[in-house]
Design a protein around this nucleic acid. Structure first.
Length: 671
DNA sequence: TGAGTTGAGGTTTTT
DNA sequence: CCTCAACTCA
């Protein structure tokens, strides 16, 4: 049994208001997850059935955490509650109604990289070079212009891009997906929406089932996600959204802050609850954060406060260049660590871009400070993992031409560009996908005998294992195919050391293990089921890997996290705010929110740094301190040590750096 | 097919 | 400056 008395009055109000639309504005560190989980537990106590609750998040990690925490509150029956990401919910709906949406059951899901590849291909097809037209940009425009009813484009503002090009690319893109029996990430939201609007019975069924909807990080929803939620919540309007407009930092990806700002317009008479008591940071840090964010014009008024008094001042440091900045930060970090006997995991170094991490990595490595760069090369980004998954995709969905093209000559089978092109032409003529055409290689006239043979062999191998899939569990088939593929041969040519070969083989092996794991935890395991799940599960929980290490990451990656000691690096004009975003008012507002998110990650200590000059495009460039620094009241900051933030001369800073380095050297000698 | 060369471009990236 | 990708020649 849980008691809502454990919550503060506002949290309690949020947990207790079950019926009707509710907007919970939860500032950073105000116990959002706690409130949500208590709310769910309370709903169950009120007799609401598990299966009538739908909780939607953005990340798998958030979903997992929510499920876990509800479970500790209410026990095993929590498993019955549908807690999922937008995309996994969508994938499930698409899977359950594949036929109605014109898909065959074992459809593939194309990720961002493959979407870009398709756009490139389409552009090449109409001989448009993608110098001026960046594929990512085209893709963004296409998805923004797409209507969910059918796939027609409504281009309002082509803005420099030839709309005929957009239409042409779109047609090719859709046709390719269709013939590959594949969907892209956006389809996982669009197709459910279309389904609900075209099949009233299905709509009724989902509304009946999901009578209570809860949405996390609502400020990050895009217009499709909004429509989907709005459609599902249609008649009952039992929708509770939780979010913080001040932490909306994904506008560039299509997130609409307006969704949260206009919630009361979309849902008249909605109850609005503000969570403003912060349980994370010191007064100093919160006051600084409040000062920065209050400069934003359009926002839901709120002011974070805490019962924690005072706190250390925010330190501000200017370094000579980026390398010096890294030295200063790491030196300080090591001193803090010693003085306060904190583990490395108590520290985070936050930056605007991944590329800024380089000097920090170098210095951390030099001083043997354990660290992780969060968001670098991910497990699923590795070539061997992608190749493995493509082999499995080809098995599960023989129409998946993209997957086949990736692995058709990996390991090398002497199938070059021309042979592949001939295969493609023959397949197009026969009106079939590439995989079935492989087995009919002898029908392809102009093929070299060697290529013909290689194709027939590959086709036979794939066909054999595809048939195995009908009788044997997926992990077993995966193991068999992987052995037959002789991928080690590929690794031996592309790896530098024998250890690397073993390591990369082990990576692929780990995937086979995860198929086995999936089998044990799923009622009707299929290869395509595994793949669909895996495609949506990127950046795996590297929590174990990151335990006990200093976290180096972008501010975006740090959202939702907290650390006793935070360093914000590269806090200068051009980076924070970023020059490209500072051009528009909305961009600027988002940069400010980003800085706000960075500041509010800190529990106790915050140090902000920037280089006075940095190498850029080969030339040394002067850096001015971030304009956001001037918004922090002076009494909260400590910059008298170096006076750099106002106008440090090179000499002043150089002197400071020298002093700091000397201190560091002393530290090193007495470890 | 693969290594070497040239040239452009250089934000963030939950799924 | 440094990286990535397209192009080029052996």
């Amino acid at each position: 049994m849980i008691s809502l008395d454990d919550l503060n009055p506002q949290q309690r109000e949020a947990a207790r208001t079950i019926e009707g639309p509710v907007l919970v504005l939860s500032g950073a560190g105000t116990g959002k997850t706690r409130t949500i989980t208590y709310r769910i537990a309370h709903m169950l106590q009120q007799g609401i059935a598990c299966e009538n609750i739908l909780a939607v998040t953005f990340t798998n990690k958030a979903a997992r955490e929510m499920r876990q925490r509800v479970r500790t509150l209410v026990g095993k029956r929590a498993q019955q509650i549908q807690v999922s990401t937008f995309h996994s919910l969508g994938a499930r709906m698409v899977r359950e109604h594949a036929a109605a949406l014109g898909l065959r059951p074992h459809f593939s899901i194309y990720d961002g990289g493959e979407q870009v590849a398709l756009v490139k291909k389409a552009l090449r097809g109409i001989s448009v070079t993608w110098k001026k037209y960046k594929p990512e940009d085209i893709l963004f425009r296409l998805h923004a212009a797409r209507g969910w009813r059918d796939d027609t484009l409504t281009i309002r503002d082509a803005d420099g891009v030839d709309s005929a090009v957009l239409h042409s690319v779109w047609d090719t893109y859709r046709a390719t997906l269709r013939s590959a029996n594949a969907v892209d990430f956006e389809d996982l939201l669009f197709l459910p929406l279309r389904l609900l609007h075209t099949h009233k019975d299905v709509l009724r069924q989902y509304r009946e089932r999901f009578r209570y909807i809860l949405v996390d990080e609502y400020q990050d929803t895009n217009s499709t996600q909004f429509d989907l939620l709005h459609t599902l919540a249609g008649t009952h309007r039992n929708i509770c959204v939780v979010g913080d407009d001040d932490q909306s930092i994904y506008g560039w990806r299509g997130a609409e802050v307006r969704n949260i700002l206009d919630f009361e317009k979309h849902y008249p008479h909605a109850k609005v609850i503000r969570l403003e008591e912060n349980y994370r940071s010191t007064t100093t840090i919160l006051n600084a954060a409040n000062a920065v964010i209050s400069k934003n014009a359009e926002r839901k008024a709120k002011r974070l406060w805490t019962q924690r008094r005072g706190g250390a001042k925010i330190r501000c440091v200017a370094a000579v260049d980026e390398m010096d900045e890294a030295e200063l930060v790491v030196a300080d970090l090591m001193m803090q660590q010693r003085e306060r006997t904190l583990p490395p995991s108590a520290f985070a170094i936050l930056m605007r871009m991944n590329t800024q991490a380089r000097p920090f990595e170098e210095v951390l490595r030099r001083y043997k400070v354990p660290y992780v760069v969060v968001g670098g090369m991910q497990f699923y980004d590795r070539k061997e993992i992608k190749d493995f998954l493509c082999y499995m995709r080809v098995l599960a969905n023989p129409q998946d031409d993209e997957a086949l093209l990736r692995i058709i000559n990996v390991p090398a089978r002497a199938l070059g560009e021309t042979s592949i092109e001939r295969l493609g032409r023959a397949a197009a003529q026969a009106g079939t996908a590439l995989v079935p055409m492989l087995s009919r290689a002898e029908e392809i006239r102009d093929l070299q005998p060697a290529a013909r043979h290689a194709m027939a062999q590959l086709g036979a191998m794939l066909e054999t294992h595809r048939q195995m899939l009908a009788q044997q569990p997926p992990a077993q088939v995966a193991r068999a195919l992987w052995a037959a593929v002789d991928y080690r041969r590929e690794l031996e040519t592309s790896s530098r050391t024998p250890q690397e070969v073993d390591e990369r083989m082990a990576n692929a092996q780990a995937l086979i293990d995860s198929i086995a794991y999936y089998e044990q935890h799923t009622q009707e395991p299929t290869m395509s089921g595994f793949l669909q799940q895996t495609m949506l599960l990127n950046r795996d929980d590297d929590e174990e890997l990151s335990a006990g290490k200093v976290a180096v990451m972008t501010v975006h990656a740090a959202k939702g996290l907290e650390f006793p000691c935070v360093y914000i690096a590269g806090a200068h004009q051009g980076i924070m705010p970023h020059a490209k975003s500072a051009l528009t008012a909305t961009g600027m507002a988002e940069e400010r929110r980003l800085f706000y998110v960075a500041v509010t990650r800190a529990r106790d200590h915050l140090m902000i740094s920037y280089p006075l000059a940095r190498m850029r495009f080969g030339a040394l460039e002067q850096c001015a301190p971030s304009e956001f620094l001037t918004d922090i009241p002076g009494e909260l900051m400590d910059w008298d040590k170096n006076a750099a933030v106002r106008t440090a001369t090179q000499e002043e800073t150089a002197g400071f750096v020298a002093l700091f380095k000397k201190q560091l050297a002393e530290q090193q000698q007495t470890p």
